[in-house]
């Protein structure tokens, strides 16, 4: 589903990503761990087509991102660390806005059901965005991804700053998405969440993927040890 082949990115003289090779099959949750500046966000941005690679290529469902961005764009959604939405629109209107922007024309009823599915209580749907917590924004972000019916959802540290309950809710949503056949590619610092939600993990250091494997055989403690040894 997701493939990075000899992917590299340079910002001036700084080599942010060094010949990354990666393969994430459909229906998996890939958690990318690493310190700040390890290259996680750069990897996501390259998959999103927001950056052009200095070398190599990224493929989504066999389509090269930089060759056919329209096609790859139609397959992906993105949930950043803080889902930035339009402050003058409420949650439902933001969902409708981004849904329309992606070319979909869902009914209001359907959009309400998506927000509810993402875990946002109905009483908050039409409230001002300024009253939303970070967790509520994440839920609108998930609803936006659902509205687009994206096959791959990229998440950049989605649980950072969320309280334990919000994190647990978010994790549950992620699992549900995967059970529906979506692929999740998540950059995170949260080792426990990575073990909990991820089917595969990768550990990056200074632009290189140092470790990549399944999480099935690992406990959170073992992963933490591995992470600390790796970095």
């Amino acid at each position: 589903m997701l493939e990075a082949i000899n992917l590299s990115k340079k910002y001036g003289e700084h080599q942010a990503l060094k010949s990354l090779n990666l393969n994430v099959p459909a229906g998996e949750t890939y958690c990318l761990l690493g310190q700040n500046g390890a290259g996680k966000t750069t990897t996501i941005n390259l998959f999103l087509g927001l950056l052009k690679p200095s070398g190599g290529k990224t493929l989504i469902n066999g389509v090269e991102v930089n060759m056919d961005k329209n096609t790859t764009n139609s397959m992906i959604a993105y949930i950043p660390e803080v889902v930035q939405l339009y402050g003058n629109l409420n949650g439902l209107e933001n969902l409708e806005f981004f849904s329309r922007l992606s070319g979909h024309n869902h009914s209001k009823k359907w959009l309400v059901s998506l927000l509810s599915k993402a875990g946002l209580k109905e009483k908050h749907h039409t409230k001002k965005l300024s009253s939303y917590s970070k967790g509520m924004r994440q839920k609108v972000g998930v609803a936006i991804a659902l509205s687009k019916n994206a096959q791959v959802i990229f998440m950049d540290e989605p649980t950072s700053g969320l309280d334990p309950q919000a994190t647990a809710e978010f994790t549950a949503i992620c699992k549900e998405l995967v059970s529906e056949g979506k692929t999740i590619f998540m950059a995170t610092h949260d080792i426990f969440n990575a073990v909990n939600v991820g089917s595969r993990i990768g550990i990056m250091k200074e632009g290189e993927l140092i470790h990549s494997g399944k999480t099935l055989d690992l406990t959170a403690i073992e992963l933490q040890d591995l992470y600390l040894k790796t970095i």
């Binding site: 764009n73 993105y78 889902v83």
Partner: peptide, 9 residues
């Protein structure tokens, strides 16, 4: 803008 770029063709 990042959201817009990803959501919109």
């Amino acid at each position: 803008w990042k959201m817009v770029s990803v959501m919109s063709v």
